[in-house]
């Protein structure tokens, strides 16, 4: 399928995907409710910060940080790895392969279409955050109009890294039975090094070199970077540098995912479902 034909098909894919997401809204709400980790982390650090702020973070800043984390996680999430695993296992992947459109494109549409619903469901959290942040949060965006496009670029980049990385791990399912363990390792590293469990600055006191390393690894750009951008914790220079690294990772994982997928298809053709 040519790129132009694929682009013509994409809006319909998104529309049908959205209809499907609406049909599954109850499940999605439960799934979102299971994202408790930011709140678990918040409980700990909030209690710690009550005896005095940790670096730049007092109790209020921590609340904003983890609520923002909750939102970023919701609107940049992907579950394509589970979908691929299941389709490879049950053989329904065959039906996808019979269609004259690249399967990864199909997955991306399904995934993307569900995000507005997730965004809408996490709106209350966003409102709570706005309330907590008060007028200073709003005025920050008014003072610097470039913040909005930068934040959007950061969120899109975060989603693309997550999605493409998952596609790459999912494609490993063609080669090995235990691709889900690879995914688990990824998930663990993501938790540890993305700023999900604590603002990465907290590492500075304990292990500065680890904190330095997180800036070079992709995980920070999936979560911590958009959060910090949202909360105004980054100056213009740091924001632009972050965006550059983030999008370099997008390109890298794009190449990796498509390449692994191509190899995987060859293998799937030889062994079948």
């Amino acid at each position: 399928m040519t790129m132009r034909a694929a682009l013509r098909a994409y809006p319909t894919l998104l529309r049908v995907g959205l209809a499907e997401a609406v049909a599954y809204r109850a499940e999605m709400l439960v799934w979102m409710l299971t994202t408790t980790m930011p709140l678990v982390s918040l409980a700990l650090w909030h209690a710690v910060a009550e005896s005095g702020p940790i670096g730049r973070f007092g109790p209020r800043e921590l609340t904003s940080y983890f609520l923002a984390g909750l939102i970023v996680r919701q609107v940049t999430s992907s579950w394509v790895v589970w979908e691929m695993n299941q389709e490879i296992r049950t053989g329904t992947l065959s039906l996808r392969l019979l269609r004259p459109i690249h399967p990864l494109l199909g997955y991306s549409a399904e995934n993307l279409a569900a995000l507005p619903i997730r965004g809408a469901l996490s709106l209350p959290v966003a409102l709570a955050m706005l309330f907590l942040g008060g007028s200073e949060g709003v005025s920050r965006f008014l003072d610097d109009p470039t913040l909005v496009p930068m934040l959007i670029a950061a969120l899109v980049g975060a989603w693309l890294i997550t999605f493409l990385l998952m596609c790459a791990i999912g494609a490993l399912g063609f080669f090995m039975e235990s691709s889900s363990s690879v995914f688990e390792v990824y998930l663990g590293l993501f938790f540890a090094l993305s700023g999900y469990l604590f603002p990465l600055e907290f590492l500075a006191a304990r292990a500065p070199w680890v904190m330095g390393a997180t800036r070079a690894l992709p995980f920070y750009y999936q979560l911590g970077f958009p959060i910090e951008l949202m909360l105004g914790l980054l100056d213009r220079r740091a924001a632009l540098r972050g965006l550059a690294i983030e999008w370099a990772y997008v390109a890298f994982f794009y190449l990796l995912a498509t390449r692994l997928w191509r190899l995987g298809m060859r293998r799937f053709g030889a062994y079948g479902a």
């Binding site: 710690v48 907290f202 006191a205």
Partner: peptide, 20 residues
Amino acid sequence: FWAAMALLPLWVLAGTGREV
């Protein structure tokens, strides 16, 4: 691996030297 991950926040917390 997960046990180590679970320890991580406490390890970071120890760096601040605080009691909770």
